Computed example of a mutant assay.
Amino acid sequence: MKTSGNTILVTGGASGIGRELAERFHAQGNTVIIAGRRQERLDEVAATHDGIVGYALDIADPASIDAFAETVVRHHPEINVLINNAGVMMFEDLTRSRDLADAESTIATNLLGPIRLTNALIDHLTTRPDAAIVNVTSGLAFVPLIATPTYSATKAAMHSYTVSLREALKGKVEVIELAPPAVQTELTPGQSTRDGYMPLGDFMDEVMALFSRQPTPAEILVEKVGFLRFAEAEKRFDPTLAAVNDFARRAREG
């Protein structure tokens, strides 16, 4: 993936990792489109960056995705990079029967959303030079967090989907997976200051250095996420599962 001269769409681009990706790619000489549910938050980012524009999008709503894709392609036909970053993480109790609204919302946002948006844009992207799709998954795609089972499952599914997409689009669109470790963002309440989580700035410094490599790695993996990514291959899955879940529980409890 080339690092400048692109027109890049970042979903979930008003905060956290999405905002950092938008701002850092913009600083490298790219036009950046950010999308999210709250227009006012998008406008706050765009107001301080000439060359960033924001459009409202409900990534869980198929009709919103179709209308958004049509608008973006009409106003920005030069778009050649899609970064599927928007996501939600909700805690769930699997030990009792419960309302599954949170699980269903997580699947709609984290899995169906990027699949639908990619589908809406794929015919256009395959016509563009230097086209790329970046799917943001998680280290939890490889070792799940028991307290957020549907989140972990959607990220595992997106990892698998990305592998298939990469093979299907070989020679047409570059497909990259970005799998973060636990990062200090507001993905969950209190996470932005949680001890033991990777500072957002440090994470992004490492991510952008990996994006600058030629060729771009198929998987953007900062050093800290390797503990999760390679747990099964290194035959230490069970102790890693226990360690990760114990660490996360203690971190949430303070």
Results as ranks from 00 to 15, higher is better:
115 I>L: 12
95 T>P: 01
97 S>R: 11
100 L>N: 08
119 N>R: 08
116 R>C: 05
106 T>H: 07
117 L>E: 03
117 L>K: 00
123 D>F: 02
99 D>M: 01
119 N>F: 05
104 E>T: 13
117 L>F: 00
121 L>P: 04
113 G>L: 00
104 E>D: 14
120 A>W: 01
122 I>M: 13
106 T>K: 01
103 A>G: 11
115 I>D: 04
106 T>Q: 10
121 L>N: 02
123 D>I: 00
98 R>H: 12
107 I>R: 02
113 G>I: 02
110 N>G: 03
100 L>H: 06
102 D>T: 05
96 R>K: 12
116 R>I: 09
110 N>D: 10
98 R>T: 09
103 A>E: 09
109 T>V: 11
115 I>A: 13
105 S>D: 14
96 R>E: 15
90 M>P: 07
120 A>I: 00
118 T>Y: 04
106 T>P: 04
96 R>F: 08
123 D>S: 07
120 A>K: 00
110 N>F: 03
98 R>A: 10
94 L>H: 11
110 N>I: 10
97 S>Q: 13
95 T>E: 13
98 R>M: 08
123 D>G: 06
90 M>R: 15
90 M>H: 13
102 D>N: 05
121 L>E: 09
118 T>S: 06
104 E>V: 06
111 L>I: 03
105 S>G: 08
118 T>G: 04
122 I>E: 09
94 L>D: 07
118 T>L: 02
110 N>L: 09
115 I>W: 02
95 T>V: 07
122 I>F: 01
118 T>E: 00
103 A>D: 11
112 L>M: 15
111 L>Q: 10
94 L>M: 14
97 S>G: 13
94 L>K: 11
110 N>H: 00
110 N>C: 08
114 P>K: 04
104 E>H: 12
107 I>N: 06
103 A>F: 07
103 A>K: 09
120 A>T: 00
101 A>Y: 09
92 E>G: 06
92 E>S: 05
118 T>N: 10
112 L>R: 14
92 E>V: 08
104 E>R: 14
109 T>C: 05
106 T>F: 00
90 M>S: 12
105 S>L: 13
122 I>Y: 04
113 G>D: 08
91 F>D: 04
94 L>E: 09
99 D>T: 01
90 M>L: 15
103 A>T: 05
111 L>V: 01
120 A>G: 03
104 E>P: 04
116 R>L: 07
119 N>M: 07
115 I>H: 01
113 G>S: 04
91 F>S: 15
121 L>W: 00
104 E>F: 09
96 R>Q: 14
108 A>S: 10
108 A>D: 10
107 I>V: 15
122 I>C: 03
105 S>I: 06
105 S>M: 10
95 T>D: 15
90 M>W: 14
104 E>L: 14
108 A>V: 11
92 E>I: 10
100 L>I: 06
104 E>K: 14
102 D>A: 13
92 E>Y: 04
111 L>A: 07
96 R>T: 15
113 G>C: 02
110 N>P: 05
108 A>M: 07
115 I>V: 15
117 L>W: 01
119 N>Q: 10
116 R>H: 03
94 L>W: 10
118 T>V: 02
97 S>F: 15
102 D>V: 01
92 E>M: 05
100 L>D: 12
109 T>H: 02
119 N>H: 14
92 E>W: 12
110 N>S: 09
119 N>L: 07
